[in-house]
Design a protein around this nucleic acid. Structure first.
Length: 1129
RNA sequence: GGGCCUGUAGCUCAGCUGGUGAGAGCGCACGCCUGAUAAGCGUGAGGUCGGUAGUUCGACUCUACCCAGGCCCA
């Protein structure tokens, strides 16, 4: 039973990969893998959930490749894994897409549409994209416990038809029957299996428990703050979100205006703002206590501004005097909009100000100059307009000075009552009116466009405004330090991850967890309308026990809006009825809880302990320090005060090949599916793995081509070469003693030095790969493998080719096959986690087809063990030396301009060390490579080169310290030849310096060489090689013979003969060519498989060509022998 | 303003805890090989290792400062 023939070239790697996928599916390969490793020691990987909101991109492919590589590696190393993928399901990002789908423009549209229907649409969208992402992940070769994508779609359809219809599905522990809605709510649980979904009941209730703990420890509070707010989404944007993609360069209209000082005729402060809509909410003006201010005259007016901002003035001015900022403190002024009702209302306007402070003054009364360290001169006038209801820093300053607050905007950005004509207008439309009012009142000084980085909504790109809101927060005061301690117990890769996480933790404010939206975790906060008391409910059972009304409306539903909102509980303080606040939660709570919710923390604490903490997690690090990593840490710290993961592997950002971010609109984006089809995913995976993760990864078709050419095609060529010749010779691997986990068999024995060498290299690389992957370093693993592939292809196989195609069937040939087979099979096991498809194809043919007891898949095999005994350092060094001599010899041939086909009499080599272990075998290899008759080592390198002697700094530095410099000087002035002789005979070298004698041991002296002029030599790292350039007539004849062989071989191919065909060769020529034909006729016949070599013109039926060689002409012909049609070589 | 990362050949990047030759791939030039063949191999040109100062016998490697780019936080 021969191997299946292997095409020399794969036309379509993607097609081949799809066939592998089908094979895995047909043989249920993944389930077999789980069974094989069930009960082994555990390796816990916790997946960071991907937002199931759109198809995957190639950047997801990068992360998923890492995850799959390490999952596969640890599995092969004999570990049991969970293989649970995660989908992130709840939150604004899904709402926004569904809104787009439905053509909605505001929250009101959603309410009109109905919360129940809207929430179902959100769930449906998640399920449909989870199905798409599942298919894409499978295409990538990512082996996980995937749901059947069609099943997810069926659930989505059922949910939309009728969520309460009962369905029965097959789970890993048997059939499960429930309503469509509840089946969806139970996805990822042990009885259903598959990916976890953060919208699951378990995930939501587990977060409730977490929040209850926070509440019990006094960390949970409702507070007022001025926050970035999206008027379109009608929601606050948390610190975590705004920093991601939030800032854009935007041009706004900036206004400089007068604030007339009270009691000072025609004197004004000059203030500048880029947000004119905040001017009606002005309360105070701030100056820098350290800055210097000036009083200037323009016409009959006097202005105050800081000295460093005089450029803000338009037209001529006269400086009247200077003063420190502190001198202005307490001056009062007339506000620009004091005629508005809001400015005259005691304490300011708006309901929420009471949450913030207790003040009775109105804004108009509060107008004065205050000191503020934050004021700078980098922009503006050095006098800052402060509106505590419209800016985060302003708000803090307002609290400090107990100022009234004017909060002008409602949820959707419309101005509230009390602002005159502005009331009812949208914030984005206020500019003209404000400008006109200022012009009319003579307050306007200057107007100018101004470009700055301004925050926008990360979902809908609407410009954010700052708005006074009430939100729910987790206080970081105590948690911060506990989290930092936990963070330090984790290994961060790259190491700077620790610093980044700590930096974030040090700086972050209290964690805003609420959102005034619809699709998300329902915050379990119940509030009493009567007395204002609130309580936190810890799980579904507690809710059931406490419910006094509305339970029947909720029962049977997942804990989402609107049904959860129906449940009322009794107030433990006043006995009144408590209602859930309508807010939903920040989605990072959902992702952060998964080290508890997906591992059975609430239901099976023992099983949870088996898998917690995760050994390894991985995500792209930009962003995740403040998001997923952060929320995991928060939950682990609050619930267990322990690290939820031991090792965090981060990687940078994927960019396009042109060095820019990928953007569809820039035309440099690549879709995942398109990449998979055009590149093949093995290529993608190698490209990902060969990259250093902390650097941004340029991704594109050019790089993919490089990978295919340098990695995949050479690998395939070697495989194809092996199979082609093994089949010709009918070679097959031993079946005796076959072990499915180790299909490569025991290390083969051979007397051939190339065999023992390549086996040594194989085991060296195995060791390196093992170490690297254990250390989460795919980059190092690919480097080691790439170097090995080069050795295998360009040295071992190339040097061994004749052993495979020679016509005798001897032990040497068998050993050659056995060795190459062993190497290839062990190699594909090393490669299997990295490139699972091509290795599977090779395995199916090399192993599965030949061994009845073989596993179905290469991925069921054990990770290869490094056999340290065969890693012979001397052998590796000597072969490296042989390659070096060869390379140098080729270099010197090149400099003499003599092609390799022309034999030369001798190569001369000098090696300054390591020659002792040299053997004739290496000489034979080098001679053949260099096409020389002999290789001679010269004793005295001075024949070829001159010496230079240097101190061995590494040894002498510590010994001599500062005197090393003088020793070096002395050494270079001595007779180098004499020193070399001393050193080579093992004697110390004595140096006299300033009357003192220093003795240097032989190993404390290094010898370096320089090529002497006029010789065709090449030298590198202490090795020198020269070739004799004399070409004798005999050598010339031989060279011609080799030239003829080559031309005949090409003719064989052009004539369409098979490589084993026997032929008759005709040659008509004179002179030296005729000599060559005669003298080397046996050689010619053997090389070209000619049974006969006829010195005459070829007959008409032969394939013939006229050739010119060195100015001579020869008529060559080749003719296939009828008798040679029989098989065999 | 603060934190982190990056800066090595035309391009993309390797260079482990300082040790004496500065490397790979791509591109370029020239050549070779040809029974893995619309593949492969070799050689070469090309770099003051961002800059400055310091530590050291010795710095691409460590330290400080500066410059440029990126990310993050104010």
């Amino acid at each position: 039973m021969p191997f299946q023939d292997v095409p020399a070239k794969v036309d379509d790697y993607a097609k081949q990969e799809r066939e592998v996928l089908q094979l895995w599916k047909d043989t249920d390969a993944f389930q077999t893998l789980r069974t094989l490793h069930s009960g082994q020691p555990k390796w816990s990987f916790l997946d960071g959930p991907v937002t199931a909101n759109n198809p995957l991109g190639v950047h997801h492919g990068w992360g998923r490749t890492y995850k799959d590589v390490f999952n596969r590696f640890w599995t092969m190393r004999g570990r049991e894994l969970r293989y649970q993928n995660g989908f992130d399901c709840q939150g604004l990002w899904v709402e926004v897409e569904v809104e787009k789908e439905l053509g909605f423009r505001s929250k009101r549209d959603i309410e009109t549409y109905g919360l129940d229907a809207f929430v179902r649409k959100c769930k449906e969208r998640v399920l449909r994209f989870a199905a798409v992402q599942t298919e894409q992940s499978i295409r990538l070769g990512y082996w996980m416990d995937w749901n059947d994508p069609d099943h997810l779609r069926e659930l989505a359809t059922a949910l939309m038809e009728n969520p309460s219809q009962r369905m029965t599905v097959q789970g890993p522990r048997g059939e499960v029957t429930d309503t469509a809605e509840q089946l969806i709510g139970r996805l990822g649980m042990p009885d259903l299996g598959g990916s976890y979904f953060t919208f699951s009941n378990e995930n939501n209730y587990m977060i409730w428990s977490f929040l209850k703990q926070c509440w019990q420890r006094g960390w949970l509070y409702r507070g007022a703050d001025v926050m970035p707010w999206c008027s379109r989404c009608a929601t606050g944007i948390s610190q975590h979100e705004i920093v991601t993609d939030g800032y854009q360069d935007l041009t706004h209209t900036s206004i400089t205006l007068r604030l007339p000082l009270r009691g000072r005729q025609r004197e004004s402060l000059l203030v500048w703002t880029t947000t004119p809509w905040t001017l009606p909410s002005n309360v105070v003006a701030a100056v820098g206590p350290e800055l210097t201010y000036v009083k200037v005259r323009q016409g009959d007016e006097m202005f105050y501004l800081s000295k460093g901002t005089l450029h803000m003035l338009r037209g001529a001015y006269e400086v009247l005097g200077e003063m420190p900022g502190s001198m202005l403190e307490g001056w009062t002024y007339d506000g620009p909009f004091d005629h508005l009702e809001a400015a005259r209302q005691p304490g300011g306007n708006g309901a929420l100000r009471d949450l913030a402070q207790d003040v009775s003054a109105c804004a108009a009364e509060a107008h004065r100059v205050v000191l503020w360290d934050e004021v700078s001169e980098t922009e503006g006038t050095g006098i800052v307009h402060v509106a505590p209801g419209c800016g985060a820093e302003d708000f803090r300053l307002g609290k400090e000075h107990n100022l009234p607050i004017l909060a002008p905007l409602d949820e959707e950005g419309y101005v509230l009552a009390g602002f005159g004509d502005f009331s009812g207008q949208h914030v984005s439309a206020l500019l003209d009116g404000i400008r006109q009012t200022l012009t009319d009142s003579g307050r306007l000084y200057h107007v100018e466009p101004y470009t700055h980085r301004y925050p926008t909504c990360w979902r809908c790109a609407t410009e954010l405004v700052f708005r006074l809101v009430d939100e729910w927060f987790i206080s970081m005061d105590e948690l911060r330090h506990a989290m930092m301690e936990v963070t330090k117990q984790i290994r961060w890769i790259p190491a700077f991850g620790l610093d980044r996480e700590l930096d974030w933790l040090r700086n972050m404010h209290d964690w805003m967890i609420s959102k005034k939206r619809y699709w998300g975790l329902a915050l379990p906060f119940w509030e009493c309308a009567a007395c204002g008391h609130y309580e936190v409910i810890g799980d579904d059972q507690e809710l059931a026990a406490r419910a006094v009304a509305g339970w029947e409306d909720f029962e049977g539903h997942t804990p989402h809006r609107p049904y959860i909102d129906a449940v009322k509980i009794a107030c433990s303080t006043c006995g009144g009825q408590m209602q859930r606040i309508t807010d939903v939660a920040n989605p990072w709570l959902d992702a952060g809880i998964v080290s508890f919710s997906t591992l059975g923390y609430r239901t099976d604490r023992e099983a949870w302990r088996d898998w917690y903490p995760a050994h390894w997690i991985s995500e792209s690090f930009p962003g995740q320090f403040r998001n997923w990593f952060y929320s995991l840490l928060a939950m682990g710290t609050v619930l267990e005060n322990s690290p939820p993961f031991k090792e965090c592997f981060g990687y940078a950002t994927l960019i396009a090949e042109d060095g820019r971010a990928m953007h569809k609109s820039w035309g440099n984006a690549i879709e995942f599916n398109e990449a998979a089809d055009r590149m093949g995913v093995d290529v993608m995976r190698w490209l990902y793995c060969a990259h250093k993760p902390e650097n941004n990864l340029p991704f594109g078709y050019q790089r993919a081509d490089e990978v295919r050419r340098q990695f995949l095609i050479p690998l395939w060529n070697m495989y194809s070469f092996f199979v082609t010749y093994a089949n010709l010779d009918g070679w097959e691997p031993d079946r005796e003693g076959f072990e499915p986990g180790r299909p490569e068999g025991p290390t083969p024995h051979s007397d051939n030095i190339l065999d023992t060498w390549i086996v040594a290299r194989l085991n060296q690389v195995t060791e390196r790969c093992t170490t690297s992957l254990q250390d989460s370093d795919t980059h190092a693993a690919t480097l080691a493998i790439a170097a090995f592939l080069d050795d295998l292809s360009n040295w071992y196989i190339r040097r061994s080719r004749r052993r495979y195609w020679k016509s005798t069937h001897d032990t040497d040939k068998h050993t050659a096959y056995a060795t190459l087979y062993h190497v290839l099979v062990k190699l594909i096991k090393l490669l299997a986690p990295l490139t699972p498809f091509v290795t599977e194809v090779m395995y199916q043919n090399l192993v599965r087809a030949m061994q009845p007891g073989a596993y179905d898949s290469v991925h069921h095999c054990d990770w290869p063990e490094a056999n340290a005994v065969v890693v012979n350092a001397t052998l590796l060094d000597q072969m490296a030396l042989a390659r070096q001599i060869t390379s140098l010899g080729l270099g010197s041939r090149g400099s003499a301009n003599i092609k390799v086909r022309q034999p030369l009499a001798a190569a001369l080599a000098y090696v300054h060390e390591g020659e002792a272990a040299w053997s004739e075998t290496y000489t034979a290899i080098v001679c053949e490579e260099l096409n020389v008759k002999s290789l001679q080592f010269v004793e005295q390198e001075t024949q070829l080169l001159s010496y230079e002697v240097l101190p061995n700094n590494k040894l002498l530095g510590p010994r001599l310290g500062a005197t090393l410099g003088r020793v070096r000087a002395a050494l270079t002035h001595t007779d180098a030849g004499a020193v070399v002789q001393q050193v080579q005979s093992g004697n110390p070298v004595a140096l006299s310096i300033d009357g003192e004698t220093y003795e240097l041991d032989p190993d404390e002296v290094l010898i370096r060489t320089h090529p002497a002029a006029g010789l065709a030599v090449a030298t590198d790292r202490g090795v020198t090689v020269a070739v004799e350039t004399d070409i004798t007539p005999a050598l010339r004849t031989e060279g011609l013979a080799r030239e003829l062989v080559r031309r005949i071989q090409v003719m064989r191919r052009d004539a369409g003969f098979n490589i084993a065909d026997r032929i008759v060769t005709y040659g008509l020529c004179e002179g030296p060519l005729a000599d060559a034909l005669l003298t080397w006729s046996d050689y010619l016949k053997a090389e070209t498989l000619s049974t006969n070599l006829v010195a005459s013109a070829p007959p008409p039926e032969a394939y013939s060509e006229e050739h010119r060689i060195d100015g001579m002409t020869i008529m060559l012909g080749v003719q296939r022998q009828a008798a040679a049609a029989s098989p065999g070589v």
